[in-house]
Design a protein around this nucleic acid. Structure first.
Lengths: 377, 377
DNA sequence: GCCCGGTAGTTTATCGATTCACATGAGGTT
DNA sequence: AACCTCATGTGAATCGATAAACTACCGGGC
């Protein structure tokens, strides 16, 4: 009455379990004729083939690789950079015949599916260092590759040179004469508590995300090198255009208004540009904007966005390759640092001589300006 | 010497396997004190916790859901519609605490990872009906939900009303006075062989993809209802902007030139618009363009693209929900048909009186027109 | 005449847990 | 005093396969 299994099939045929197993996975170990007979009876009995679960348990291999994301998987599939990254991973895995399992490491409320995930290896993608899910992954001692994550010795890492890229962004602005640069960051509060709102965080903020930290450091270094003041920053609770808009609103109220806005991502930058348009400020005439990532939308924006390109897809492909190599050889690979490239488009230009004040009333005092900015909402 | 296991841990403690197992998964079955002692020894011995593989084998559950795509996973993560779909799926699964495994069903060369995938259920997303991977999935009798796939009795299906949506697209064009409508489709050749190039396929083409077929039928019906000739079509080998451009090149050579182009997707439509811009043709003044999907890029295009909206994300969420329900109840759910909605933006308008001929010759007869259309191949 | 190697299969041990039925003792009931 | 119940644990059976070592047979080389 029970389901057909390797054993019941073998008994029905009067051969051994092993022989049936071989019929499926080692054809050369038995005669073609017997193999055919086995398949025929299998069809007859409705045998579905060897159970992957049982086979994996025995073999100690699952032929599946996990990718661990922080928290919201919806984001992992919505954000252009992380999808591109996944595309890179998936391409390599597919070639190697492996499946890809997407795992989420919730920020709170248990460790998520990581504790039950059946994977041979793990790609950890920009996960909070104090995430319970990550802790479980460590405890399980799954061979891992860290991506967009603080390097650890003994583990292969793939990172982008975020710091240098961010430096280049502000260097570019400074070279054009900008001296009042503000930044739009993500989850950059010092406190662990995730803010619900965009908030001004001054210029000494830190973050739980390694990438965010690195880019912020890059901004500061760039400003320092150029001899301009470090950027005042807004921290957004999430990396999307809506929050970028809100952040811009906050930053544009500053007096004097910044002449350039650097953003932690293109998504944020797009939101920033939308807000600028809504406030009738021209890009780049009134305010310059720089993004990060060079996502597909950056080139299509109006105006096309100056940004720092990172090879998101290659990053994924490389991480997958490193992990597959590691599984094959047993040796933890080396760490890799991928280069970024400043892509200058049309969202940046030298600040107009009077840019900081243009839309406010011509009779402008410090005070008047500030109020005008506010009443704009 | 071997790895720590439930058994070795139990022996070290002098308790039974069962008790250790309970310590992990059924805390109420033993005293808190013993439980603590077990965990302490576990830490000491470096026990990683119950093996998910072994547990799944025994329990008969993996808490993981598969999503089966055709062929190229890189595409699955690049295409805006399929990523949105995945986002919907992932969101639901995450809530349910399930992992998501992405599987590819190669068009050729074996059945891919589907034969070894350890999943409780499967979402089949727009997979060729003759795909070997799909055949394996069927043989394994995994509870499935079909999405963008020809409905089958006994299996839950989620589909979008592609036919009605496509009809609405051409109806909209016809209502504005367009009578020469051409179509850009994907892999629409009758032959199984996937073409490497975009090719003109007349107006009776079919496709191995259910969605493509439905949309093409919708176009034809729409034209019929409006009393305009059915669209001449180009079939692209893949669904991306580059091929859309190429398709446009082919279609614009027709004499008389079509006044409107309907596309199977927004990605194709974006390519089409790029080509029109390159040929100095204005949209919509010279040629109207309609897309399908209402992907995020459609609204950002120049000009904003008229398109048929489909709820890609909801589709994913619904499919996941249906599958989870099915696993819970054991009953195959019902089939669902989601509505589409025509979103009129600025890429469509009435054809100019001389639009069909502006750059071409003004002498046009019925006959001339028909022959011109044919001789074009 | 003997040993050798290859082919076709079989036997036995194992992968690492969960489940179900049952044992034991403490405390409370009637 | 006999009976029940609850809280804690135990033992045996099972989930479904694969790996490694071993048997039996057959033809060939020296």
């Amino acid at each position: 009455m029970s389901r057909t299994t390797l054993l019941s099939l073998a008994q029905a045929l009067g051969v051994s379990r092993t022989t049936v197993s071989n019929a499926y996975s080692r054809p050369e170990k038995l005669s073609a004729e017997l193999r055919e007979r086995i398949f025929a009876t299998a069809r007859e009995l409705g045998y579905e083939g060897p159970s992957p679960l049982a086979a994996s348990l025995r073999k100690g291999r699952t032929d599946s690789i996990g990718v661990l994301f922080t928290d919201d998987l919806g984001y992992a599939f919505s954000d252009p950079v992380s999808t591109l990254f996944l595309a890179g991973v998936a391409g390599q895995l597919q070639e190697a015949g492996h499946a890809l399992t997407v795992l989420s490491a919730p920020r709170s409320g248990g460790s998520g599916p990581m504790s039950r995930a059946m994977v041979d290896g793990l790609i950890v993608y920009s996960v909070d260092e104090d995430s319970p899910g990550l802790a479980v992954a460590r405890k399980r001692a799954i061979p891992s590759v860290l991506v967009d994550q603080a390097p650890e010795t003994g583990t292969a890492c793939v990172n982008v040179d975020d710091r240098v890229g961010a430096e280049a962004a502000v260097a570019h602005l400074a070279a054009q004469g900008h001296a009042a640069i503000a930044g739009v960051a993500v989850a950059a509060g010092d406190s662990g508590a995730a803010a619900e709102q965009c908030v001004l965080v001054g210029n000494n903020a830190t973050s739980r995300s390694y990438v965010v930290r690195e880019r912020m450091v890059g901004w500061r270094h760039g400003c320092e090198d150029a001899g301009v003041p470090p950027p005042v920053m807004v921290s957004c609770p999430a990396n999307d255009a809506e929050h970028g808009r809100h952040a811009a609103r906050l930053l544009l109220e500053a007096v004097p208004r910044p002449t350039a806005l650097v953003c932690l991502s293109d998504e944020l930058a797009l939101g920033v540009m939308a807000e600028l348009a809504a406030q009738d400020l021209r890009v780049p005439a009134d305010v310059s904007v720089v993004g990060f990532d060079d996502s597909p939308a950056a080139a299509m924006a109006q105006p096309p966005l100056t940004t720092v390109r990172q090879p998101a897809r290659d990053k994924g492909a490389l991480a997958a390759q490193l992990l597959l190599d590691r599984l094959r050889t047993g040796e933890a690979g080396s760490s890799q640092l991928l280069a970024t490239e400043l892509v200058v488009r049309s969202s940046t230009a030298a600040p107009a001589a009077d840019a900081a004040t243009r839309p406010a009333d011509p009779s402008r005092s410090r005070k008047g300006r500030r109020h005008a900015g506010r009443s704009d909402r």
